[in-house]
Write a protein that binds this DNA or RNA. Structure first.
Lengths: 115, 115
DNA sequence: CGGTATCCGAGATGATACTG
DNA sequence: CAGTATCATCTCGGATACCG
């Protein structure tokens, strides 16, 4: 494909970016994703690990489950156990996550060097 | 460097991601960036191009200028002209932008295929 | 043209308490 | 344990009008 910078291609970029933002918006979704990328966790473990309130975690997990980014599995033990895991579709966000992570690290280094 | 998934590395990832999110948060910043990546634009041009209100554009531009992602240049013509451009530092977000864009395009294709 | 001031409603987020 | 309900607060973001 030819590399162009027409008004149309720029508008298409914006649409694509907006689409992605709709899926990963919110303060916690990417943090949840990167945490679950390491290994599946239970509700309370996520609360402790990320430092999010149960209310927000519940909401964001529901959003992400609707978008098929994560799966929710209930184990009928007692007490009940619920495990959240990243899905194959969720894993496709890995490259995005990696770049955001890399940028954050470089940026932090940059700020530290400048101070 | 060895690839590990310790609790510490995961926490570091989260910190990096949060750092990045603080810089690119908001509904419009990434859209502004990807638009300015093509070429510098003036205030009103950005309003028209992106479809953002002047109020929000003004706010986001100020944030981004503080974070050195964009530059603001005033031309003393009459009437006055102000041009916004992406900085070298802003360009370092290009890889993030690209991945977000790619994912958005794939995701849109995926949804269209499934319907 | 390039913004800013003001107002307002909607949604995000947190704290706390509570349920099955 | 795995959430939900409720309340309070704060911010986001749009509409509109206005200024230099």
């Amino acid at each position: 494909m030819e590399i162009t910078h027409t008004k149309e291609s720029c508008a298409a970029s914006r649409r694509a970016i907006q689409d992605t933002l709709e899926v990963i918006n919110g303060k916690w979704k990417l943090l949840i994703l990167v945490t679950l990328l390491e290994k599946p966790l239970r509700f309370k473990e996520l609360v402790r690990e990320i430092g999010v309130t149960p209310r927000m975690l519940s909401k964001e997990l529901q959003d992400m489950e609707m978008n098929k980014l994560i799966s929710r599995t209930v184990y009928q033990t007692k007490p009940i156990a619920v495990e959240y895991a990243i899905t194959e579709h969720g894993k496709t966000l890995n490259r995005v996550l990696e770049e955001i992570k890399n940028w954050g690290m470089s940026h932090r280094n940059k700020i530290m060097r400048e101070e």
